[in-house]
Amino acid sequence: MQQPIAILDSGVGGLTVVKEVMRQLPREKIIYFGDTARAPYGPRPSEEVLRFTREIVDYLIQYDPKMIVIACNTATAVALQDIRSKVNIPVVGVIYPGARAAIGRTQTGYVGVIGTEGTINSGAYDAALKRLRPDIEVLSKACPKFVPLVERGNFRSAETYDAVESSLIGLKGSSIDCLILGCTHYPYLADTISEVMGPEVTLISSADETAREISTILHDQGKLSRNEPVPIHHFCCSGDPRMFKSIAQQWLNKEIELTPVVWQVPKIG
């Protein structure tokens, strides 16, 4: 049986990564877990995010994945190294790929980052950007209103525009020419964010760069799928499957199989 790529997120945000993996690697099978019952992760203590991530990885290991992708910026900041130390397959996060993409696009050397409180407070993007380019100037801001909007499927409305506009005060009109969407939920709001920030600011989503990193790692390890049939993907969530399925179908433009998850006692950690 074809080994899948396991992708996890706090909710529906990681589907932005799924979409790019489907586009760039159409032969790869995906097993996805969205922790919709406990989203958002951003305001939670780091210890709690670490425990949740361990539990999800423990659940996903039963599918014998060839790679784990932590498609949640908060979980990447908190748990990436921990999970890498506990499994014997590659584990990819979304922060470094997003930082690398921004470094390649900025012309002014001023980069903005928006994300959850957990991601911004961790300083993970600042560290990744400065590791790649020490002279980079970073302007970061937490946008806690965004994830609840996305989890409700509220992508474009007057409420959404007002939330985006008020959240981006201090970034709009600044010197930045690139804005990293430092949460995989945020691409759902990309049209509104772009409208507020204006055409002179390039939005950076880590999804496409993460998919490229996945492709490179699997190619180097000789693990790219060569199956001819279209793979059957598997989607799981911990909360209400109806909202998850509705958003997933809208974003991925296809019917998906959905299995609600009953939590088990974690064996990892």
Rank of each mutant, 00 (worst) to 15 (best):
R152Q: 15
E137A: 13
R152I: 06
G182P: 08
A207G: 13
V138W: 07
Y186K: 03
C143G: 14
Y161P: 00
S167W: 02
D177C: 11
L179F: 04
P144F: 09
V150F: 00
L168R: 01
N154Y: 09
S174F: 00
E195R: 09
A128L: 04
I204M: 12
E159H: 03
G182N: 11
K141M: 06
L168H: 02
L139H: 11
L139V: 05
H185T: 09
Y188V: 08
S175N: 12
C143K: 07
L189F: 08
I136S: 09
P187F: 06
S167T: 07
T184I: 08
D135K: 05
E200V: 03
S174P: 00
L189K: 03
S166Q: 13
G198A: 06
V196I: 13
A211L: 02
I204S: 14
V196D: 08
L189M: 09
I136N: 08
D208E: 15
G170E: 04
S194D: 14
M197K: 02
S166M: 09
A207V: 13
G170W: 01
H185A: 08
K141L: 04
D162S: 10
S205K: 12
A158R: 14
N154W: 11
R131Y: 10
L179E: 03
D135T: 14
K130W: 00
L132F: 08
S175C: 03
S174H: 04
T192Y: 02
L149I: 09
T160P: 02
V150M: 00
G173K: 01
D208Q: 15
G170N: 03
T202S: 15
Y161E: 10
I193M: 05
I193W: 02
S167D: 05
L139K: 11
K141P: 05
Y188T: 08
L171T: 04
V150I: 09
T202I: 14
I193Q: 02
F146S: 11
E165F: 10
E137P: 00
A163G: 05
P144R: 14
Y186A: 09
K145A: 15
I214F: 06
A163D: 08
I204V: 15
G153P: 02
P144E: 12
D135C: 01
A207P: 10
M197Q: 06
A190G: 11
L132I: 01
A128S: 13
L168F: 03
G198K: 07
V201L: 07
L181Y: 07
S175M: 06
D177S: 10
P148A: 13
G182R: 10
E159P: 01
R212I: 15
S206E: 10
I180E: 03
V196Y: 04
C183Y: 05
K141W: 01
D162V: 01
V147S: 04
L129G: 07
Y186R: 04
R152C: 11
G170P: 00
K141G: 07
C143T: 15
K141S: 12
I214M: 06
E137S: 14
R131I: 05
D135H: 06
I204T: 14
D191V: 09
R131S: 13
E165P: 00
P144H: 13
R152T: 12
L189Y: 07
E195S: 11
V147G: 01
E151W: 03
R131P: 00
